[in-house]
Amino acid sequence: MSSPGDSRRTIARRRETALFLLAVPALLLLGIIFAWPVLRLLAMSVEDGTLANFEKATLDELYLYVLFDSVKIAAMVMAICLVVAYPVAFWLSRAGRWGVALGMFALLLPFWTSVLVRTYAWLVLLGRNGVVNRWLRDAGLIEAPLPLLHNTSGVLIGMVHVLLPYMVFPIYASLLRIDPDLSRAAEGLGAPAWRSFLRVTFPLSLPGVSAGCALVFVLSLGFFITPALLGGGRVIMVSMLIEQQVREFLDWPFAAALSTVLLVATLAIYALIGRITRGARHA
């Protein structure tokens, strides 16, 4: 026997189910394009029934060194992006309509050219006889050309250029979300602008900083065209080694093991970034 109460609960449950069904296509898509390949990757890396591939990927000095180096470069790119992007985002969040339009245009402009073209442009700008060095020399600031290219600094410049928008936008968004009355309140209560920024605006923008850092860091780890071209061969990223294994040696199981190690390292650092920014917020 069903009481009226039962059928009401049924109707309520049915509504919840309907809502859940709306999310099913997205979940399926995520499952298919993300979870499944990751699982396949894992399976492939232990295809031979042993952990030999992982042993090589995690114990061999070469791969450890490259992984460490990649993480170091990604962290440096992230740090530089943060320092450059924050003021830009801050200015954008306070700028008028025309300022925002101009800023967005300037930030998005590079997106309309390919990474390869942008990277080659840097070759022209940063070379020994490139535009930058020529200007500096003509201005009498330097005598010998600065080594801006074919080393770590070239890689950093190129990667920061490509990834900067990924840092600016999350920070900009989080700054926009902050109630403008909060900094007014701080100033009204006696804070000079810089203290109002340090105590109120900056801590509240940390979610954006965290998202931007995670995004830039993760994307940096996957880069290989830019470091290959601008690093002059002196900078090796894990992604370059993975690409070598996949394309040149067809050693997919080992590539899968390397990818898995990279994935785990990425997730670990991602978690770390989240923890640090959460901690800083309530400090």
């Binding site: 080659y120 022209v124 070379g127 020994r128 006889n129 490139g130 074919h150 290959a228 071209l229 002059g232």
Partner: peptide, 20 residues
């Protein structure tokens, strides 16, 4: 004495032109 270890075929040509 190797200033650059090149990756793509366009690089060495470009570097010679630029006197890199």
């Amino acid at each position: 004495h190797i200033a650059v270890w090149w990756t793509t075929g366009a690089q060495p040509a470009q570097m010679l032109v630029d006197r890199e």
